[in-house]
């Protein structure tokens, strides 16, 4: 039984679910994204790797318009997403809300809401979005909880859970909205090492079940084993793109080679005198 209730539920096009064209983003004078283009097909899982500050998070945040691109086009589920300051306030709010209901995002710090129980955390957004009757939504949430083995914790408050448990709840909280794409930004970076595995396992399971996702990660082995494709970002530009085995096994660009050497053998960093990539 698939973990995601409807992996590509109701996608209206056969083409890419997400298409970014020449996305640029400036923070003041600093250009963080310098023309990024990218297409993600339904069911695909894509890893994004790159050095700190290369613009990975900014790229993800442009997809759900947490950051407004300076220029470029976002095509999602067959429609062009309007953004920009010239939009009328309420229209803009509605566009953002509608987009985010279909684009799930999970963060490094799990950000569960401490005043709600695990179950309440999961059902809140589907209830607000009117995705179904309360009983149905609760039923689905409980199903999701069962699948990650946390049904018994449904009435606990997040503060009573381990980091790994909280992050897995955060992931199924996003899934409860039945998103057409899931954005994961270094979701294991804040976890104690012994808790990383359970979260990666869940993501791997979702990928296998055909959940479309964009995963920013520092876990190279995970990118290699789980994602269909990997993208290497360097200073706001996609420098490498292709099947994960190729990009990670035999990257063409010098920067990617150095980056991989550094993250795969962090202890060699000093000895080899590798400078910042």
């Amino acid at each position: 039984m698939p973990l995601d209730p409807s992996p590509q539920g109701g996608s209206s096009t056969a083409g890419p679910i997400l298409e970014l064209s020449d996305i640029r983003k400036k923070f003041g004078a600093l250009e963080v994204l310098k023309g990024v283009s990218l297409a993600v097909s339904p069911g695909e899982s894509l890893a994004i790797i790159g050095a700190s500050g290369s613009g990975k998070s900014t790229l993800l945040r442009c997809v759900n318009l947490f950051e407004q691109p300076t220029s470029g086009q976002i095509r999602f589920d067959g429609r062009d997403i309007e953004y920009g300051d010239d939009l009328w306030f309420w229209k803009r709010e509605r566009i953002l809300r509608d987009l985010r209901r279909e684009v799930g995002m999970v963060f490094q710090s799990y950000n569960l809401w401490p005043h709600m129980t695990v179950l309440e955390n999961i059902i809140e957004a589907p209830l607000q979005a009117g995705l179904g009757r309360r009983a149905e939504i609760v039923g689905k949430a409980e199903e999701l909880l069962q699948k990650i083995g946390m049904y018994e914790k449904r009435n606990e408050y997040p503060s009573r859970l381990s980091g790994g448990q909280q992050q897995r709840v955060a992931i199924i909280r996003a899934l409860a909205m039945e998103p057409k794409i899931l954005l994961l930004d270094e979701v294991t970076s804040a976890l104690d090492p012994e808790l990383v595995g359970e979260v990666l396992e869940l993501i791997a399971q979702l990928a296998a079940e055909g959940v479309t996702m964009l995963v920013v990660t520092h876990e190279i082995a995970f990118a290699r084993d789980v994602s269909d494709r990997t993208i290497f970002v360097h200073k706001g530009v996609i420098e490498e793109e292709g099947p994960s085995a190729e990009v990670l096994g035999n990257p063409g660009s010098e920067h990617a080679q150095r980056f991989l050497r550094r993250v795969l053998h962090p202890n060699l960093k000093k000895a080899a005198g590798v400078s910042d990539v």
Binding site: L96, R97, D98, R100, G104, N111, W113, P114, Q128, M177
Partner: peptide, 24 residues
């Protein structure tokens, strides 16, 4: 992050305030 996670799930700004932020 509390506000961002609410917005990321498609809650409107007003709902995020009312359901997530103000109770805290």
């Amino acid at each position: 992050g509390q506000r961002e996670s609410a917005l990321a799930l498609g809650l409107s700004r007003a709902t995020a305030m009312r359901r997530v932020i103000l109770p805290q």
